[in-house]
Amino acid sequence: MTKDTIFLKVKDHSVSGEEFDLLRHNELDMLITSPQPKEQSLADYYKSEDYISHTSHKRNIFEFVYHIVRKIALKRKLRLLNSLSSKSKRLLDIGCGTGDFIAFAHKNGWIVSGVEPNEKAKSIAASKVENTVYDVNYLSSLESGSFDAITLWHVLEHLPDLQKHLQIFKNALSLNGHLIIAVPNFNSYDAKHYKDFWAAYDVPRHLWHFSRSSIKEIFKPYGFKLQKEQPMLFDAFYVSLLSEKYKTGRMNPIKALWIGFMSNLKSRRTKEYSSIIYIFKKTNS
């Protein structure tokens, strides 16, 4: 991928305090984190007790609310998954964290597997789904057509080699299988409001930053047809709370809820929600 001019300079607010550039891609409406840590050192940027997707803790009101919202989100994700036509129910969840989603899907009739690079999170997830959770090396061993659905809930932006992984997803899905991707949208109202303090930039853990148009273009060469988009309404509030903390040192819940509300309200017209779920169907082998 070719890189163009600096779009924004953003600080890693949660772990290292280092500053990174966001470069606008020459051909696609997307941003690229620069410099990108090498894979060997990238794991160091996840070493924080505050990296909430890797923990089941409820140490404060923020984490308590997060886990309540996550339970609601689990039901919505399963409802979406069940709405997709499939003769069988073989699911692969990439970046499954502590395994709440695959455990919930398993209880509701899905044959599940998960991939999680964080050892602590992987161990927790494996205990919930009879040890069908693996490290990233598992992806290279997948047979063609192994799954009817592959999900990446806020994971695509973390993957170092997009082209390699998109080819893996294509191969691993059955014909007419579905790929479900959820990613932040840097064209959203809350992103434009918070600018370099927007928490969903989350550099350098987020290597790529997508727009609606770039997502569509990236998946075209791999035989995926976009069926629909679906907003993740809670994300506007969650991201705004974190963004307020990064900007002011406090979460400022009233202001954050207002920004989240305005972002969702304006997106009813623009469709530029803070985070968006994209449902793709594999249309050729």
Rank of each mutant, 00 (worst) to 15 (best):
R59Y: 12
N60P: 08
N60C: 10
N60H: 09
I61P: 03
I61E: 04
I61K: 07
I61S: 05
I61F: 11
F62L: 13
F62K: 08
F62P: 03
F64D: 01
F64C: 09
Y66K: 15
I68N: 14
I68Y: 13
I68A: 12
V69C: 14
V69M: 15
V69K: 13
R70W: 09
R70V: 09
R70E: 11
K71P: 04
K71N: 15
I72E: 02
I72A: 12
I72L: 12
I72N: 06
A73R: 11
A73Y: 08
A73Q: 14
A73D: 11
L74K: 14
L74Q: 13
L74S: 10
L74H: 09
K75M: 13
K75N: 10
K75V: 15
R76L: 08
K77P: 13
K77Y: 07
K77C: 13
K77T: 14
K77E: 12
L78G: 05
R79H: 07
R79V: 05
L80N: 03
L80P: 05
L80I: 08
L80K: 07
L81G: 04
L81W: 06
N82Q: 15
N82Y: 05
N82H: 13
N82W: 07
S83R: 03
L84P: 01
L84D: 03
L84W: 08
S85Q: 11
S85C: 09
S85N: 10
S85M: 11
S86F: 00
S86G: 02
S86M: 12
S86D: 03
K87I: 01
K87D: 03
K87L: 11
K87V: 04
K87Q: 03
S88Q: 08
S88M: 00
K89G: 04
K89F: 01
R90N: 05
R90I: 00
L91I: 06
L91W: 00
L91E: 01
L92S: 04
L92Y: 05
L92I: 08
L92Q: 04
L92N: 05
D93L: 15
D93Y: 13
D93H: 11
I94H: 06
I94C: 07
I94A: 02
G95N: 10
G95C: 12
G95I: 09
C96S: 11
C96A: 09
G97P: 08
G97W: 14
G97H: 06
G99N: 09
G99K: 09
G99F: 07
D100H: 10
D100K: 12
D100G: 06
D100A: 13
F101S: 04
F101Y: 13
F101P: 10
F101R: 05
F101K: 07
I102T: 10
I102E: 10
I102V: 14
A103V: 04
A103Y: 06
A103K: 15
F104L: 14
F104N: 14
A105H: 03
H106W: 07
K107T: 13
K107A: 15
N108I: 04
G109P: 02
G109R: 02
G109S: 06
W110L: 02
I111V: 01
I111L: 01
V112M: 02
V112T: 09
V112D: 01
V112R: 02
V112K: 01
V112S: 02
S113E: 00
S113P: 00
G114T: 01
G114K: 06
G114H: 02
V115A: 01
V115R: 03
V115D: 01
E116C: 01
E116I: 00
E116W: 04
E116Q: 01
P117D: 02
P117H: 05
P117V: 05
